[in-house]
């Protein structure tokens, strides 16, 4: 019986040869780990495959896990590294976003603001555009922005997972957002109310110059 046991107990059980306990660990974390991998790879099949590889690798290397970070962070790191090291997936065309089963992930039916029958289609299309923009980012920038803006991790957690300094997280995140902003200008222009409409870049730069004087 493995349900109801905490992470540490489950890991010890795995080490003692209770393979079923590892299944419980997988169940605990697979749904949390899947979305960032989906956004890193742009393909549900690849994301699931990488996630499975990451868990298998974690199982094989369980003796290397000494608890310096949480098991979740450790597996997260393995999975992200697998995703980033996979150049073939990184080069995948944006159209592959809607690979097997992806359409189910884009179901917008729970969006209360949407009453237009065409809304699900628009939402799916918008998500495809955003995903395409993400895939155009260099992997190291994509990773930071996905971990922050998709998964909502703290800078410190991102730094731990990617094994980079927090300062690098900040700068990569800034650059990634800037690049995404340029690529997604059409969506950003249509998005939000009038008050939220972004100002022209020249105006922003003017402000910046004014502030630096």
């Amino acid at each position: 019986m493995t349900s109801g046991r905490d992470e540490r107990t489950l890991i010890e059980a795995c080490r003692a040869g209770e393979t079923e306990a590892f299944g419980t660990l997988v169940q605990m974390y697979q749904d949390r780990l899947f979305p960032p991998l989906l956004r890193l790879t742009g393909c549900a099949d690849d994301a699931a495959d990488i996630l499975q590889d990451a868990f298998l690798k974690a199982f094989q290397k369980l003796d290397d896990f000494h608890g310096e970070s949480s098991f979740y962070t450790w597996v997260y790191r393995i999975a992200v590294n697998l995703a980033l090291s996979d150049k073939r997936r990184n080069r995948r065309a944006p159209s592959s976003l809607t690979g097997t089963g992806d359409s189910a992930f884009l179901d917008p039916s729970d969006d209360p603001d949407r009453t237009d029958p065409a809304a699900p289609l628009e939402l799916a299309e918008r998500e495809t555009i955003i995903q395409a923009a993400l895939l155009e980012l260099a992997p190291e920038f994509r990773a930071v922005v996905v971990l922050k803006d998709v998964d909502g991790l703290r800078y410190e957690q991102i730094a731990a997972i990617l094994e980079i300094p927090i300062g690098t997280v900040r700068s990569r995140l800034h650059r990634a957002r800037e690049e995404l902003r340029n690529r997604l200008s059409s969506l950003l222009g249509d998005r939000g109310g009038r008050n939220d409409r972004p100002r022209p870049v020249a105006a922003i730069e003017g402000d910046l110059n004014k502030n630096t004087k």
């Binding site: 749904d31 922005v145 997604l184 950003l188 998005r191």
Partner: peptide, 22 residues
């Protein structure tokens, strides 16, 4: 606005029970 646009992407659960497969 950029951050929120990215954050607005859906967060689907894993389509498979990987524990069984593993």
């Amino acid at each position: 606005s950029t951050r929120d646009l990215i954050a607005s992407m859906s967060r689907p659960a894993c389509p498979l029970d990987l524990s069984q497969a593993i």
